[in-house]
Design a protein around this nucleic acid. Structure first.
Lengths: 178, 178
DNA sequence: TCGCGACATGTCAACCCAGGAATGTACGAT
DNA sequence: ATCGTACATTCCTGGGTTGACATGTCGCGA
């Protein structure tokens, strides 16, 4: 939220829209959280109500303290590694369902990765050439991460399905040889 | 937990150790959660106390219902896409700190990816040849995902740092030409 | 035999988060 | 003029998470 407000003042509703439109792939947020957090940030002096508009609209702007805190967070606070992937957790227990279903699971993962990849390509077409140099660059970089991640996931899932198929084949041969 | 118990009975403490040792990269859990969850699973009839040992040790085993539920979850419940990466979120706001610090951030991400990659390679050396065919295969597949992910992250971060450097250069030229 | 470290479980407060319900206002199109 | 839609905020409930605290037992080595 400090990051969004650093680009200019906005209301809670504006921020909500931004989260839904452009940040939902990276950091989804709900309105309850958003408004609560705005209140908290205001109490800590990191944001301030700059103006009140129609319909009770409160336009928030970032304060100097807020900017300092944002820069601090950006470069000094170590990023937390994203853990907890139920997609990967399932893989560990895939031997419980047999090679056939396991292969199916992995193939579906591959398909989904392709689908997400396509969606990101669509977004890239859509945002092409928007914003100034710096903004476009960092948006591009984030998008590229998504593209590479989904591509890697597709390759991996296909490779994994192949490995499972090989095991299936091996088992079938052993059964045949007995 | 059902997945772990499907490999054989264990106490809450055993499960905790397993989470710490081998699942912490995929699904970290704390003891409070673990014991609470064991109680819940027992109440739902998905696990059962099989034996009691010294020190109040309660050995749980998975029930038939539990196995059914596990298989159901593995193949029928759609995996949730992992969102929320503060690492990526920061990228969006990197223009707030200038090209120099931004490049530094990305370079540190690349270093960290290399470090994680090396750790995973170490794990692979360590677990090589353990377990039976199926178990080894799925462990391998999960590990391979980590390897590919960290490799992709390194490539991406280096590529991104290069892009930022290019922007830096461009700006410097413009400043010189004025 | 004595004490330490590993084994083992349980409880609690605080926080974050998702989703939904409730409430109301202003604007634009017909 | 009015009606629907978008704007805009607040509150509530339930569930997941974390981290700390509390308690106690067994086994082994000095």
């Amino acid at each position: 939220m400090l990051g969004l407000l650093s680009a200019g003042p906005a209301s809670g509703y504006d921020l909500l829209k931004t989260f839904e439109l452009s940040l939902e792939n990276v950091w989804p947020a709900t309105q309850s959280q958003l408004y609560a957090e705005l209140g908290r940030l205001a109490k800590e002096g990191l944001v301030r109500v700059a103006a009140e508009g129609p319909r009770g609209r409160k336009e928030y702007e970032i304060t100097e303290e807020g900017r300092t805190e944002l820069r601090h967070w950006l470069v000094e606070v170590p990023p937390t590694l994203t853990r907890r992937s139920d997609m990967l957790l399932r893989v560990f227990f895939l031997d419980q369902v047999g090679t056939d279903a396991a292969r199916g699971y992995l193939e579906r993962l591959a398909e989904r990765a392709v689908h997400e990849h396509d969606q990101l390509l669509g977004i890239r077409e859509f945002v092409i050439g928007q914003g100034d140099d710096a903004l476009r660059l960092y948006g591009d970089i984030a998008l590229e991460w998504g593209l590479r991640l989904t591509a890697a996931q597709r390759d991996w899932a296909e490779w994994a399905a192949g490995r499972v198929a090989a095991l299936e084949h091996e088992k079938a041969e052993q059964a045949g040889a007995e």
